[in-house]
Amino acid sequence: MCSPWGALNGPARVALLGHELGHFVNGDVRRGPVTQPALTMLGNAADLFRPRGGSDGGGLLVMVGEWLGHLASWTPPPTGLRHRMLGARPWQDPAVTLTEARAARLDAELAGHYERAGRALSWNA
């Protein structure tokens, strides 16, 4: 049984761990059990107010909804802009690497968990 973790190569595993540990180090609580539902709800609400275009003459409610949509989407940069900003940065060699030997040790340590998850999935299928 292969997990998503098992499908990643060494650099991708290091990147994933670094990303997730960064949430803790930086005090990022957005993924906590209390805050996650609130953020999900707000994201869904933002979809309701997202401008669709072609709403000329829709009345005051449509105009207020479009204004709220613009206001909500103005606060985080769009994905395309974030991608361009990161792509413009110069390459840096990774500070942390995972050797093949260490990757094999991790896989051996997690093998029991992979097997148990595989059994649980096949039992529920």
Rank of each mutant, 00 (worst) to 15 (best):
45 A>K: 05
12 A>H: 03
39 L>T: 01
93 D>E: 13
74 W>Y: 06
50 R>I: 05
42 L>N: 04
73 S>P: 02
107 D>V: 10
10 G>T: 10
123 W>L: 11
47 D>F: 09
46 A>L: 11
99 T>E: 10
91 W>H: 08
31 R>F: 02
95 A>H: 06
118 G>Y: 02
21 L>N: 07
107 D>F: 03
98 L>S: 06
81 L>F: 00
75 T>N: 02
124 N>H: 10
94 P>R: 14
75 T>A: 12
9 N>V: 04
102 R>M: 13
59 G>L: 07
115 E>Q: 14
2 C>E: 13
93 D>Q: 13
124 N>Q: 14
24 F>A: 11
28 D>F: 00
74 W>A: 14
90 P>V: 03
42 L>C: 04
67 W>G: 12
46 A>F: 03
54 G>E: 05
22 G>E: 01
98 L>K: 10
116 R>M: 10
33 P>S: 08
120 A>G: 07
107 D>K: 14
121 L>F: 02
95 A>Q: 11
55 S>E: 15
93 D>R: 15
11 P>N: 13
5 W>H: 00
16 L>W: 02
72 A>T: 07
74 W>S: 11
110 L>W: 01
55 S>R: 15
109 E>H: 14
61 L>H: 07
113 H>Y: 06
119 R>M: 10
42 L>F: 00
34 V>A: 06
37 P>T: 07
105 R>K: 14
17 L>A: 15
49 F>I: 05
18 G>M: 12
8 L>E: 00
20 E>K: 04
96 V>F: 09
